[in-house]
Amino acid sequence: MSYFGDIYRGIKTLLTGMSVTGKYFLHSRKGAITQQYPDNRDTLKMFDRFRGEVVMPHNENNEHRCTGCQKCELACPNGSIEIIWDRQIDPESGKKKKMIDQHIYHLGMCTMCGLCIEACPTDAILWAQNFENSVYNRAYLTKVLNKPGSKLMPGVEE
C-alpha cells in the first residue's frame, strides 16, 4: 500500500513544484531580471559608483589635478600604480616643483579595491563605469592615465 502511496505523494509534490515553474513559464517576461547584453549596450547604464577602472579626468585645457604626491601609489596593495615624476620649473612661480611625468596604472593587476581613490587628496583619479576591459594583448592593460602634454591644473595644491 505504501508503495502506491509513495507514487501518489510523488506525483502530488511534482505537480506542486510544476505549478511554480508553470507560472513562470506562462509569464516569462514578467519580472525577468536578465540583462539582454550585448543587445542593450546602448541603453545599459551602470550605477554611478560602479568600479570599472581608474581614470584621471582632464579638463578642456588638457589639465589634470594630480600633483604627484604618490599617496595612491602607497595605498595600493598590489603595486598597480606607478608614478614617474621629476622636478620641473613651475611656469607660474618660476620655482622647481614636483610634477608627474607619467601616472601608470596596471589595470591587469588592479583588484578594484578603491583605496587609491580614497587616498588621493586632490580627487585627481576617479572610477569610470566602463566594464568592457578585455583586450587582445596583456600589454594594453597597462595605461598611462595622464594624457600626453597635459599639465597640472592651476591652483591645485596638495
Binding site: F47, F50, M112, C113
Partner: peptide, 28 residues
C-alpha cells in the same frame, strides 16, 4: 540574488568583492 547584488552595486560599487568596510567605518 540579483536584486541584492544590485543593492550592493549601487551602494558599494561592486557585486562580489565589496571592500566597503574600512577600519573606522565605511568607505562612503
Amino acid at each position: 540574488r540579483e536584486l541584492i547584488n544590485d543593492i550592493f552595486e549601487e551602494t558599494c560599487g561592486a557585486r562580489l568583492t565589496m571592500n566597503y568596510n574600512i577600519p573606522g567605518g565605511l568607505m562612503f
